[in-house]
């Protein structure tokens, strides 16, 4: 049941004048979970649907385990798919939904398999329920079990959590990761939620306008974003004026390393809120404008001359950072990206 490698090669797809896929290349290693992340309309769902065979590509190839499946219809591609919502067959019970794919393959006398899959997603007690008798989270678990029951070569998840509420979303994404690791199926996970992508994937592919901007492990995408779009889309960033000289950029009086080299001159640097430290200092050049409590951490907005800087601080610090307090800002020396400027 170990996975197979998937290769998307030069995929192009246009809807009218909009390029949903613009020469997209993507390689997924056997057993790997890749999350495609991007704003709506960036082509991530089109990429998944082309891989599934539910959408035609204008050009390019889809290889699964080295075999060209571009001309194969969806029902012969051997892929398990989980949709955003409402994909369970309403006239079948949970167990019947899970065994549906097996029955299509003529394996109707394999009751153990479907039950085992329900057990895997923790719903063995709900086999006789109909979809309308289950919560959204339970329905998505059944959908996952149904997709995995046929032992697909590739598992495709199309925004599977976006219709659920926050708490269930976090719970279920961890479960998806656990199950995927357990069965080892090569998986493509499409989402617009950066936190979800970072939490669940081996590698995250950030897409924009039908192309991959960056494909890297979550930590790399977060800490060393390839360019301003990724830095902006993945996590919140301050846009601060800076001056490049040599391999460093000076921002608010601190010299920070650059992710990618740049020509000397005035630039806009993208600095993460958690890389900004705030200390009360009567002689400091900054003033606290607003502060908001977010739980274990808090967010503080500081005005330094004309520039607004958002900083993430430990909530314990909050009492000393009331609006109006004079503060000093220090930037941690982590590599930063530059806004290419437009």
């Amino acid at each position: 049941m170990s996975g197979v490698a998937v290769h998307l090669e030069g995929l192009r797809r246009a809807f009218g004048s909009v390029h949903a896929l613009d020469d997209l290349d993507l390689e997924i290693a056997a057993g790997e979970l890749i999350a495609l992340l991007g704003p709506s309309g960036c082509g991530k769902t089109t990429a998944l649907r082309v891989l599934a065979g539910l959408e035609d590509a204008d050009s390019g190839r889809v290889l699964v385990g080295g075999k060209d499946v571009t001309a194969l219809p969806a029902n012969r591609r051997d892929m398990g798919m989980v949709f955003q919502a409402y994909s369970l067959f309403p006239h079948l019970t949970a167990l019947e939904n899970v065994s549906f794919g097996l029955r299509l393959r003529g394996r109707r006398r394999d009751p153990g398999r479907a039950a085992a899959m329900l057990d895997l997603v923790g719903l063995s007690a709900h086999g006789r329920r109909y979809p309308h008798q289950m919560s959204g989270g339970q329905q998505q678990r059944v959908a996952l079990a149904r997709a995995l029951a046929i032992e697909p070569a590739v598992l495709l998840l199309d925004e599977p959590l976006s219709a659920l509420d926050a708490k269930v979303r976090v719970q279920l994404r961890e479960e998806i990761r656990r199950i995927q690791t357990e069965v080892g199926t090569t998986t493509l996970f499409v989402t617009h939620d950066q936190e979800e992508a970072l939490a669940v994937a081996d590698r995250v592919g950030v897409m924009r306008a039908g192309r991959l901007e960056q494909l890297a492990p979550p930590a790399v995408v977060y800490q060393q974003p390839a360019g301003a779009f990724v830095a902006d889309f993945v996590g919140l960033s301050n846009r601060l004026p800076g001056v490049v000289s040599g391999p460093v950029v000076a921002v608010l009086g601190t010299e920070l390393p650059l992710i990618t080299p740049a020509a000397a001159g005035r630039v806009t640097a993208l600095v993460r809120p958690e890389a900004v430290d705030v200390t009360p200092d009567p002689d400091g050049s900054g003033r606290v404008l607003t502060s908001s409590f977010l739980g274990s951490t808090s967010r503080v907005t500081v005005a330094v001359a004309e520039t607004l800087v958002v900083a993430q601080v430990a909530s314990g610090q909050l009492p000393s950072l009331t609006p109006g307090t004079a503060v000093r800002l220090t930037l941690q020396p982590v590599p930063v990206a530059l806004d290419p400027g437009n």
């Binding site: 067959f89 549906f100 794919g101 299509l104």
Partner: peptide, 9 residues
């Protein structure tokens, strides 16, 4: 689409 991805004609 679910039917198709599960191998149904």
């Amino acid at each position: 689409e679910a039917t198709e991805s599960l191998g149904g004609s």
